[in-house]
Design a protein around this nucleic acid. Structure first.
Lengths: 303, 303
DNA sequence: AAGTTGTTTTTTATGGATAAAGTTCATGCT
DNA sequence: AGCATGAACTTTATCCATAAAAAACAACTT
């Protein structure tokens, strides 16, 4: 059966809105709510029905946000607000990056399906989607081959990344002064400076910043293939670093400084400087990944 | 039910082998046949059973290729040797490139499934695979958006293609003299010259040559992401030109000359010359595509 | 006429079943 | 022992079913 995660997530959002007083007084129309919560009206109505049922809102001509206060246990647990497909993704990434899955292993749809508690269909769809990341390969009628999260992979990934980023950075710097992206860039520089001050406690915030930065650079001259490639990077890094937190503060600190230098270079519009700053940053990011990769391998060999 | 296209294709291959006399005398062992036909022994046995049943081979202690001659109507029709998934691909590409599907159209899995006579699952798997080509985009719970086979698409595609090809061509030229790829390149040059002589009748052969050439260039310094990207190009061009044959001979002739110049440049190992030849060829390929694209659009608008 | 809510229809996400194809195990033959 | 065939088992490709979510339609209300 299809999961009702959309409803549950919407319900939680609505509960939050109630709690924050965003819905004080008479409730907005179903259409208005629909727009705010980014779901269909069908789902909004289901949420409203349940809110009423739990007496979190009351009916007096129109619906009003005058029910009892929202309690912590009114919320659906997080796990129930994530669709199956996402769970498959998470479990697969853990299986791949955590387990002792060696390059060359073959992947069995049925076995994964059993292990993750989903139908084979879901596994297969995930694998098809995942295959564009260059880590697995399909052999028809037979199954999938895991090619390994290896140094080769990282090298090839970074070779492309450098090409793309150099291209985008140069094009960014050629924008007219009037472009709104310059002020976005300035804002981002401030955000970096801010984070630098709070680095001790907030160092995890860097990854969001990193993303915004690299996506901003691509915005000046969009190319769907570059965007797609950046999705790969984001995805890989997200999961890889989720399970590999060594030196996180240290390496984020270094990266912030590199970003700032990179931003300065962009603002200078000096092509040579830009190239240098861009290369420096990416070389360092690559080193970090490679180090953690080899470290990773060794620990799993010794384990 | 799963199709038996693997069996039917294997059967046809076996029939061919019989006809060619490749299996004269006592038949090889099942394992040997399995290897030659690239299928499992299970499938080989099914083929053998049917060959026997149709008296195309006879049993006298061992199986012998002494049955009646293979007739033209012993073969299964081509359509039955292609798996469903491939049919979906073909029908979808036709739907997309032939029909009047405008950019911004939304794609309905169920409707396509009905139209193509397959289950929705097959459509969905195809769309997921196809999405990496940058022509469609998924919106969760809602469907797919067709972004259009537009000029933008072609421009973005070629921007990447140029970057990748320049990179690969330069790296190719840096190979040591001892590399076997040089002789492959020379062979390819010959093949081009040959084709040039027979151009009047054999001009379709160019597309195979084109593929071999560009893949050869990538071979010198492999990168899976570049290979993947080249898959996109191959795929797109395959279908696009399949339905758009205007000037085929003319443009292939031009391309052959460009390739030869390009190969000469590579052999000269002169970086500047290589870049020029490479750019010239790709610019011309891009023009061809763009021209056919706008032509395409106009006719479908006027239709 | 534009915006509400109630109802019905369509479509997507997900599970399940099964024939075909692949793989492994068992037995027998040189 | 090593390879051949036969039989049993496992996995993939494919279809079908259905609850959840979205979209379309209809009837009101101001």
């Amino acid at each position: 059966m299809r999961t009702d995660t959309v409803y549950k997530k919407a319900f939680n959002r609505a509960a939050n809105m109630l709690r924050d007083g965003q819905l004080a007084g008479e409730l907005p129309s179903e259409n208005e709510l629909r727009r705010r919560m980014c779901v269909s009206r069908t789902t909004v109505r289901k949420v409203l029905r349940e809110l009423l049922n739990r007496e979190l809102v009351t009916e007096r001509h129109g619906l009003r946000a005058t029910g009892r206060a929202v309690g912590d246990n009114d919320y659906y647990p997080d796990a129930e607000t994530t669709p199956r497909a996402k769970h498959v993704e998470q479990q697969f990434m853990e299986w791949m990056l955590r387990g002792d899955t060696r390059p060359g292993t073959s992947i069995n749809e049925l076995e994964l399906a059993r292990q993750f508690g989903v139908a084979t269909n879901g596994i297969r769809e995930f694998l098809i989607r995942f295959s564009r990341f260059g880590l697995i390969e399909k052999r028809p009628n037979t199954g999938w081959l895991f090619k390994g999260f290896t140094e080769d992979f990282a090298l090839e990934l970074f070779e492309i990344r450098v090409m793309f980023e150099l291209r985008s950075a140069q094009l960014f710097s050629l924008q007219p002064n009037s472009s709104p992206l310059w002020s976005k860039l300035a804002a981002l520089k401030m955000a970096h400076a801010d984070l630098l001050e709070r680095i001790e406690s907030r160092f995890h915030d860097f990854s969001g910043l990193d993303n915004r930065f690299h996506r901003l650079i691509n915005e000046a001259s969009p190319n769907r293939f570059i965007d797609d490639f950046y999705d790969i990077i984001t995805f890989i890094f997200h999961y890889h670093y989720q399970w590999n937190k060594q030196d996180e503060k240290q390496r984020n600190l270094a990266a912030i400084h590199e970003h700032i230098a990179y931003i300065d270079a962009l603002e200078s519009r000096n092509s040579t400087r830009i190239e240098a700053a861009c290369r420096a940053h990416l070389a360092s990011a690559r080193e970090t990944l490679m180090r953690s990769l080899t470290g990773f391998d060794e620990t799993s060999i010794n384990a």
